[in-house]
Design a protein around this nucleic acid. Structure first.
Length: 278
DNA sequence: AATGAAACCTGACAGC
DNA sequence: TGCTGTCAGGTTTCAT
């Protein structure tokens, strides 16, 4: 479901609402799929912790935790600061809610907060992942909004893989997903199937710029709401109104009126203008 | 080493 | 109404 702009929006919302709050206790559901750490590790790491800050790393939501109030002298396990890592997969959601709110289907974790509220993780398809980690979690790859042009080019130069596959590779660039890869490639005038090795320096310059531009604009609009994506406050995003190719198969290109094409590349729908993109 | 297909899951929707 | 097929914003694993 969410790519970098959506995760950024959600993390900002969670940070605004949760930083300073504490996690008093945790309920974990019986489905093991979303758990990358053991239930006991998750519970012991989260319980009696203070949420210092919530932020984003690639498509991961990162909760920075420190020992909570109850521990004047931190014991072994609580001694160090820790991180709670949440990946939303395709359908994961994090909601902050009143305990009286009915528990939605596919709720896999509920954290009871010191403020009296609850933080719930809901994920129907269970592609999402929860884990706990000592401070210093590193998802690999570089942040698309921080990478400079030189390093950006170096990531891709010489690779035989289609440029879109490379853009989606989280070990290279972290956070770009299907929608924003298509949108960035359109703005740069490059076809998704183009081999990275066949892209000129000038086109890479354009692509670097396009990736950052698309992500920044999307964050400014709160992300793209295609089906039911909403941020931590239940607000939809609006970047879907700015999509130039994604989801527009058969519709006219906004630049040249040619019908937008859809092709499957590496199992993902890829949308492009056959005339504007070469 | 590198690519593509399949698998992991459920829900929504279109068409019959 | 209900069945079947298709698709989904992600990632990992397996076979070629």
């Amino acid at each position: 479901m969410p790519e970098l702009p959506e995760v950024e929006t959600i993390a900002r919302g969670l940070n605004r609402r949760l930083s300073g709050d504490t996690i008093d206790s945790v309920w974990i559901g019986s489905r093991p799929q979303p758990l990358k750490s053991s239930p006991s590790a998750i519970a012991s790491t989260l319980e009696d912790r203070r949420i210092v800050r919530v932020h984003r790393a690639g498509k991961h939501i990162v909760f920075d935790l420190e020992p909570g109030n109850g521990q004047r002298k931190p014991s072994r396990r609580a001694a160090r600061n820790a991180q709670w890592i949440v990946h939303l997969g395709m359908t994961g959601r994090m909601v902050v809610t009143d305990p009286a709110t009915e528990i939605a289907r596919h709720t896999h974790l509920i954290a009871k907060l010191g403020s009296g509220r609850e933080l719930r993780f809901i994920d129907p398809r269970m592609f999402g992942k929860l884990s706990v980690h000592p401070a210093g979690f590193d998802p690999g790859g570089v942040e698309p909004l921080e990478v400079g042009e030189r390093q950006f080019v170096a990531l891709f130069r010489g690779r035989k893989t289609p440029i879109k596959s490379a853009l989606l590779n989280q070990k290279l660039l972290r956070g770009v997903g299907n929608i924003y890869a298509d949108e960035a490639l359109f703005r740069a005038g490059i076809r998704p199937r183009r081999r990275a090795a066949a892209i000129t320096r000038e086109q890479f310059r354009k692509l670097h710029q396009s990736v950052q531009e698309v992500l920044r604009e999307a964050i400014a609009l709160g992300g793209s709401s295609i089906n039911d994506y909403v941020d931590a406050d239940g607000e939809a995003g609006f970047f879907q109104l700015q999509h130039r190719v994604y989801g527009r198969e058969g519709e006219p290109c906004l630049v040249c009126r040619t019908a937008i094409k859809r092709a499957v590349l590496a199992g993902r729908s890829s949308h492009y203008c056959p005339k504007c993109q070469r």
